[in-house]
């Protein structure tokens, strides 16, 4: 079926299968070629292909597709309306909002709230929970960010020379009409935003905030800088090598520093790292350092997303 509708093996699925069976970087090269090649040529070849009579006639395909589309639209509308109605009806049977006796407020919550500060040393109980009791969960989450950045990089990095030249030409055009208001405001604001981001990260165990929110603030400052001054200035300190080194170091430090759980039988209690005095900046065991790691990963990933979508490279 797939072969008959797709005699030259141009569909994404066929390419993916070929990629799997050949196991090298052919997929990328093929996608590049397909983008670069003149559009008329493959179509002409498809018309000339000898297995054309074996294909389903065009009119039949079109009629079937239209019927399938109408069926799909009706079914999708019914399904969306049905699921929404069902969910809204279900909420009326849920335990009422803000009630102390709801089943979610069980003994786990009691334990986190009553013993959390003593056991983790973190005044912010949410931070204590996600970076101590559930630290592996957060490690997995940072890895999700890292993997997503890798995936976007694979998909969007400008691979061939023409694309790169085009992007550089765009960049030069953009730099010529830079906005003095934006640049002045950026010069004033970026240090303050960076300072605020560092404050949020470093006080993650003492006040609201933490690695994720602080990292997002830092990333926003860097994105503002990139927008105001162009990638020529931003690229001086934010290269791919810096990005890779920082994220990989942060993730490795996180993974290694939490690996002691394996040697103590997944029991954190007999650890050499003590919680310290709750409320001090240097307290809560490893939590501030893990917060810094998470913050760096989030900050660099946000910047990488923006830079990749903007100009196809970091």
């Amino acid at each position: 079926m797939a072969r008959r509708l797709d005699p030259k093996g141009q569909s994404l699925y066929a390419r993916f299968l070929r990629y799997l069976s050949e196991g090298d970087d052919r997929l990328d090269r093929e996608v590049m070629h397909a983008v670069d090649a003149p559009p008329a040529q493959p179509a002409a070849e498809t018309v000339k292909a000898p297995e054309l009579p074996a294909r389903v006639p065009e009119a039949v395909v079109r009629r079937h597709t239209r019927a399938a589309r109408i069926f799909y639209l009706v079914a999708a509308a019914l399904m969306a309306a049905g699921i929404s109605l069902l969910l809204i009806l279900t909420t009326t049977d849920l335990p009422s909002f803000g009630d102390d006796g709801n089943p979610v407020n069980n003994e786990v919550v009691r334990r986190y709230l009553e013993d959390g500060m003593r056991e983790t040393g973190s005044v912010n109980l949410v931070t204590g929970m996600i970076l101590d009791y559930r630290a592996f969960d957060t490690l997995g989450e940072s890895n999700v960010l890292f993997t997503a950045a890798c995936a976007v990089m694979i998909l969007l990095r400008a691979g061939n020379r023409e694309e790169r030249i085009e992007i550089e030409a765009d960049e030069r055009m953009e730099n010529r009409n830079q906005d003095p208001i934006l640049q002045t405001v950026t010069r004033l604001l970026v240090p303050l935003i960076l300072m605020f981001g560092c404050y949020v990260i470093l006080n993650g165990h003492l006040s609201p905030g933490g690695g994720f929110s602080g990292g997002a603030v830092l990333g926003a400052a860097m994105i503002l800088y990139l927008n105001a001054f162009g990638s020529g200035s931003a690229g001086r300190f934010m290269t791919l090598a810096v990005h890779r080194a920082v994220t990989v170091t942060a993730l490795s430090f996180y993974a290694l520093s939490k690996a002691y759980s394996f040697f103590t039988g997944a029991n954190h209690l007999p650890s050499v790292i003590t919680p310290g005095t709750p409320g001090n900046l240097f307290s809560a065991g490893l939590i501030p350092y893990l917060n810094i790691c998470v913050g760096l990963v989030v900050c660099f990933t946000m910047y990488a997303f923006f830079a990749l979508f903007r100009k196809g490279d970091i």
């Binding site: 407020n105 786990v108 919550v109 009691r110 986190y112 709230l113 009553e114 003593r118 949410v126």
Partner: peptide, 10 residues
């Protein structure tokens, strides 16, 4: 640190 003082952190 009483459990009755704070909302559910989970």
């Amino acid at each position: 640190t009483a459990a009755e003082a704070y909302v559910n952190p989970i």
